[in-house]
Amino acid sequence: MFEARLGQATILKKILDAIKDLLNEGTFDCSDSGIQLQAMDNSHVSLVSLTLRSDGFDKFRCDRNLSMGMNLGSMAKILKCANNEDNVTIKAQDNADTVTIMFESANQEKVSDYGMKLMNLDQEHLGIPETDYSCVVRMPAMEFARICRDLAQFSESVVICCTKEGVKFSASGDVGTANIKLAQTGNVDKEEEAVIIEMQEPVTLTFACRYLNAFTKATPLSTQVQLSMCADVPLVVEYRINELGHIRYYLAPKIED
């Protein structure tokens, strides 16, 4: 028996919004410790890794490890039927071929349940090596989304250059060139507005705007985003989900031939 309950459907809606543009389907691996999903996009350029800890749920029961392959488009349709404040419960029997998603209004007067067929997805799991990143940037998630959106107008690629002075995002194309520099915040009044850079070594990497923009669909989940970079390895874009877990996107760099 698997049962996981969240106080507000809005969190699950936001999580799905954050992954459904990159992934058509995904396997939710459920265990005592929580729910995990790892999947590459169709082009195998990016990897999504979602972790939801069991202690972040209002109720969590997982008697036996369970892998639930789900069509994320179908799941999105079901979640559209929930009000943001509804309680949401995801339930499945051991070895079941369906999952039940149940919504309850705050006053318990409306209860709806939706059944969805599970899929047997033959997804390969990748081992993500421990990496000592040369630069780790924390910045407001909205600012990062804005920069990615703005630079996508100029080029398919964005160059991220991080030094101890700050982080620079650049793009150039037919229209011209664009450079956006963010300095590390001097006095941090509000932590959520801070730009914090931890640098071991300066790093310059090139990434596809299209994917960065897809990652920013996670912006409603977190006030801050963390970018971890190291020469010649994938960028990690991490959004923490308050008291529940995190979503990490890995993006393979573009390299000079």
Binding site: V45, L126, T206, V233, K254, E256
Partner: peptide, 14 residues
């Protein structure tokens, strides 16, 4: 020339 790499060239299957 800039070439897009894939995740599979950095992370191994387990």
């Amino acid at each position: 020339n800039v070439r897009q790499t894939t995740i599979g060239s950095y992370f191994n299957k387990i």
